[in-house]
Write a protein that binds this DNA or RNA. Structure first.
Lengths: 344, 344
DNA sequence: TTTATTTGCTTAAACGTTTACTTAAACTGT
DNA sequence: ACAGTTTAAGTAAACGTTTAAGCAAATAAA
């Protein structure tokens, strides 16, 4: 209670109280060689006593760096991205940095707009997952050329030379498809998203490779695209697809399509896995308690976020970029459950 | 390509190019009366041409406001919080503000630490959901007294006079419990979280009220607490509880306990809803496709986030605080599904 | 002792804005 | 024609740090 409750205490205040110059305060707090041990202690003590907290904006302005990074992602209500943020945050917090969060909602326009803002020097670095409809990448290039390090995770942009944390989308889709084929599926459909982010193309590639390997012809009609939002319309679209194409296996390429697929099957009175088997790319822990438990491709979301942050802080610390070492693929895992149980 | 690719263009650059003073640039860009229409246009044009983006830190320093808010929440890998962030972001983006995100991981120490940092003036306002073990609220009081508006959502702090967006935890737990009682349960257990955030106390209150109303004695042994993290240990704890207390109904008070409960029942070969009925507080869309579909208390997460942001921006715009009008409760909804189906 | 070096601190400029105050010119109305 | 007002600028200080440069006193080297 004895402490100054009064207004803003800054270096000037401390300087006045201690009868030294502002420079002395600044240097003492940054543990500069210039300042004597005794003075340092006095400064630190009174700073604590008066609850001095440095003004980050003055500091950022002067130092031309902000101790802030941007996390740019398409959406947040998705177990993959929220777990990834958790991973990112675990490093950001530890490094005493701050994280600004930006949601593109998968819109190129918003993404470009955000990058434009960031060109002000607002952040020291960026961790991002690219919007699905981003084709023109000049906004990203320009920020990078302005000296702001960028690390991609999950939805990477191959044409930008920088660190990239991916998971093996091609391979895991390949494994998932192979799994379905081994469990007896002959007519597997891939449910994907309109707009087509590149990772979904990779998943499609893995899917096709497995089909080819098992000498199943991949037909265009087996690939169906939904809107990237959970809604009734997608259920209708999928039902229509199931009725006309009659797949005996479905690979849902994004989280919310699991619910869509299950509900469509239920409405059509199709039994999973007897009539149709299902695999979904999702990180939700509820997969284990679905009806039936869902076979999933589990992505290492937390680790991807963490690794992306580690690499970014490496760049920020001035480590030379070694592209070969920074193009990292963390494996996803096929978790087999009852939705793909073998049926006679 | 003709544009200046060169280094940082700031007001000084523009001033030099246009042969006017820096003040003129600043005023023109902020559409001041002081500047002639023609000059304004010239300034705006060249600013665009040279890709001028104002330095936010210089601006924040000078104006003593940052156009930034903080979102402080316990965790993010939770459908309630991620949907709430979505709601918050919808307003923040529209207001051209920026959002810093902080995760307390339900730790008072981290929360207090974060508030200490924020006392630097880093943000103009705060939207938060309080950590469950926060008892000492001086850090919050101090920030508020320093003039930073704070809006609470979900886990509010009743002792701080400010806007609060809640959902009717007491009532929805009451409804959920009543629902179970009406469906024939006689021995209902409440699964809750150690550390006990206040909303869980409200839920416990509603639970007890329903029991009393139906003349069921509420026993201490019916309330069981788990750690606030999805893990095997919780499953074991719950199994133990079910074996000893033999409840015929369970109310899981937080999202991840749904999976815990279902798995515990499965391992004990208990059928839901025949042997035991389950309700959970969760926003996950997968509730509909669980085995069996889960009766949930669905919270208006997005709307709560959005409303919290609206109120905060009201305060930031200088609207006088009207506490009576800013203590808002948005209703949760009991969505009845098969996990509480009536059994003979 | 004299000259160099080190120590511990101060001065003042800079970071890029915003804004109160000043100024000069161009209009008013009388 | 002249005081008064309006318009359209410019000047310079401020926001709170950081840091290069300077400087006096103390210490070390010769």
């Amino acid at each position: 209670m004895a402490e100054a409750k009064s207004n803003k205490v800054n270096m000037k205040t401390l300087a006045k109280v201690l009868n030294v110059s502002i420079a002395t305060i600044s240097k003492a707090l940054r543990d500069s060689h210039d300042i004597g041990e005794e003075t340092k202690q006095r400064v630190i003590e009174t700073a604590k006593l008066l609850h001095y907290v440095p003004n980050p904006y003055a500091s950022s302005l002067r130092k031309r760096s902000s101790n802030t990074i941007a996390i740019i992602i398409p959406e947040i209500a998705d177990s993959f991205f929220s777990q990834a943020i958790n991973g990112i945050e675990s490093i950001v917090g530890q490094e005493k940095y701050h994280a600004l969060i930006y949601l593109t909602h998968d819109s190129y326009e918003r993404e470009a707009q955000m990058f434009n803002d960031l060109s002000s020097g607002r952040v020291d670095g960026v961790i991002m997952s690219v919007a699905s409809n981003t084709k023109d990448i000049r906004h990203i290039q320009e920020l990078q050329q302005a000296g702001v390090p960028i690390v991609f995770f999950d939805r990477v942009c191959e044409d930008i030379p920088t660190a990239k944390i991916k998971t093996d989308d091609f391979n895991s889709a390949y494994m998932a498809t192979k799994h379905l084929l081994e469990r007896g599926c002959k007519n597997i459909s891939l449910v994907t998203i309109e707009g087509y982010p590149s990772i979904l193309q990779a998943r499609e590639g893995g899917y096709k490779k497995a089909l080819t390997e098992y000498q199943v012809k991949s037909k265009e009609e087996n690939i169906i695209s939904c809107s990237n939002k959970y809604n009734q319309e997608n259920i209708a679209v999928l039902k229509e697809h199931i009725i006309t194409v009659k797949p005996d296996g479905i690979i849902a390429t994004v989280e919310h399509l699991a619910t869509t697929t299950y509900l469509a099957c239920e409405e059509l009175r199709l039994n999973i896995p007897n009539d149709i088997k299902v695999v979904c790319f999702t990180n939700q822990i509820t997969a284990a308690i679905l009806n039936p438990p869902l076979t999933t491709v589990l992505q290492p979301a937390y680790d991807m976020g963490r690794k992306a942050a580690e690499l970014l802080f490496g760049h920020l610390a001035g480590k030379p970029i070694q592209l070969e070492k920074e193009n990292i693929t963390l494996p996803s895992k096929l978790v087999v459950r009852d939705s793909t149980r073998a049926t006679n």
